[in-house]
Write a protein that binds this DNA or RNA. Sequence first.
RNA 1: GGCCCCAUGGUCUAGCGGUUAGGACGACGCCCUCUCACGGCGUAAUCUCGGGUUCGAUUCCCGAUGGGGUCACCA
Length: 506
Amino acid sequence: MNPRMSAAAPRPVKVRIAPSPTGDPHVGTAYIALFNFAFAKKNAGKFILRIEDTDRTRSTPESEAAILRALRWVGLQWDEGPDIGGPSGPYRQSERAEIYQTHVKTLLAAGAAYRCFCSAERLEAVRHEQRRQGLFVGYDGLCRGLPAAEADARVAAGAPFVVRLAMPRTGEIVFVDRLRGEVKFESAQMDDQILMKTDGFPTYHLANVVDDHLMGITHVIRAEEWLSSTPKHVVLYQAFGWDLPEWVHMPLLRNADKSKISKRKNPVSLDYYRDAGFLPEALLNYLGTMGWSIAGDREKFTLAEMVEAFSFDRVSLGGPVFDLVKLSAMNADYLRALDDAEVVRRLRSWRFSDEGLAALVPLVRERIQRLDEFVPLTEFFFSGDLDYAAVSKDLLPKGRAPKEVSDGLLAFGEAIDLHRDFSAPGLEALARDFAEKNGWQTKELFMLLRLATTARKATPPLFETLVGLGREMTRRRLRLAAEEVKRMPAPAAVSTAPAAPAKPKA
RNA sequence: GGCCCCAUGGUCUAGCGGUUAGGACGACGCCCUCUCACGGCGUAAUCUCGGGUUCGAUUCCCGAUGGGGUCACCA
């Protein structure tokens, strides 16, 4: 039970992927998992999966299940995790609450952390003022000087509080990033980070550091977005008297505009890639070329080959733009390399499985007179991105400007994303509500959604169809249709008052 | 805005003081061909800028510029 290990012998490599189950399985999770996996296997180490579900309002078991399924789909199997156990469990942070409580007490007793009773309103006001003055934005330390006795009294009186890390106020914090070397931060620039929330759950910073230490993590391989909070983690390790892990901050996957990859601008769910017909090994290979190279003139490699060749020395730090076109080309290569029988197997494990077909039959059974009509009627379930050419004029309802239509499609996509209930009745309620609130006739909106998601005017019932397509495919098509509409010229004679001299257009 | 990170064609990258700056995707052209795809051949396209260091900088150093990340009781 003694977590303190002798620092004498080099510890065996142990790394982890620590996703938060608050949404669809993210391509960035697979990306970081890949590098953790490769490093672990290259060094005969362990790769563990830990679920960081300390955000009680956003975490869901469905999301957790989806993440596990997706990581297995790409072929990154963990050695320890919530589903298979292991020597350092539990592997779900929500099941480790007492551990964090204990560690917070340690910090409090050591004076490395303190209780803070400030209201959200006060914090907001402080930040607002700091921002206005263009200065460092962070907690102003009001409760930091509170005598322990007074804090105890307020707690006893039932006052809600959080626990903050008491950052050193002078000097600098230096740590080594494996890819960048020494990185320095001035302590005065670092916020007194909240470690434990009012609900008693830890924030990422505390839970992550405690678990990484307790689970024996030797290398923290994570995304670059964490680089600027690493000093807080350093202070925590030191407050506990623990050895520091080695940090490796991988570059961030980017949208075409170079911003951090986001679902607004890219399909980001691993489920999308599966449903759109990408082969997991091709996706993995592609991710392996993002910020890493196996050799100068080589970009195709298997997971095993990546493991064999793996070294952080071949990481490049410019954030790579995730390019669906290039991914598709690589996927095509993989597909061509399969023999016919294997392609059949792949199709069967894709939408041509018994379950996949069974899901579609109820949608069309009454609409077909012969079996042969099944395929044309369901064709859009087996397609990825659609071609809207044949229906492009219908995509713009009479009296509507391209901008309002494309904005509407995008907005509905957002609404779907925020809507937990992806069932037919749930979607219908959502759509009716959306229509009412945004000035659409339901008929008009439903047809628009139908066209956008199927590129056809006649389809099985809309909402059942969307369910069949899945959330990510639906959102992707709404986005593509929105772009299609945006490219359309505004109709000349519709509403704008003094008609400009009409230009002869196609 | 403060702090931090980064910088080779449109994109992913190779390069680790001396190269005709290599490969891939994409684009374009030609060939193959009943169509398409594949395949083959070829073309255009890159070292952000300015200072140093050096006999010599894409490469090392500094600065500027540009891009990104982060500044939550989210991770």
